[in-house]
Amino acid sequence: MKGRARVFGHDVTLDEIHPSEYFSLDKEKLLKGLMEGVEPGFYRSVEEGDIIVAGRYFGMGSGRESGAWAIKLSGIKCVIAESFSRYMFRNCINNGIWPIKIEGILDQVDEGDKIEVQPEKGQIILETGKELEFETFPDWVFDMIRSNEVTGI
């Protein structure tokens, strides 16, 4: 899995990742809400395979799964963050989005950097060629993410 880094800061709340006014079952409306609370119009700039990179507590606050749905709808398949709220972590797993925890990631990645992610190896490779390790998932969580990658919304 290889993609462009889309960088956000620390403490990005779910209400910013997907503001409540975009709550809908209409896919277009759901998608338009993606990151609208931090970067209006973000959805227009997303390319298939982009990777969100964020700081600590990505997705804090609400547990509305519409946020993870919007991420999936946009074609983003992976979020690398220093830490996740427990809701965002679980919602990612349940939607086939790889929630990868790497301490200090924000200091090492710039917007637009190419990142390669190898979930099986527990490793990512930065644009500079630098390799970073992460604690990979228990087998059953790994299988859950894989099986949810293919199911649609």
């Binding site: 606050g61 609400s62 547990g63 509305r64 799964e65 993870a68 809701y87 679980r90 919602n91 349940n94 939607n95």
Partner: peptide, 22 residues
């Protein structure tokens, strides 16, 4: 199905929130 399900702890329950898929 809500993050403030922690409130049930006031009554001595283990109140815990989940997203939709869970």
């Amino acid at each position: 199905i809500d993050s403030h399900s922690t409130m049930y702890g006031a009554l001595g329950a283990f109140g815990v929130g989940f997203g939709a898929s869970d």
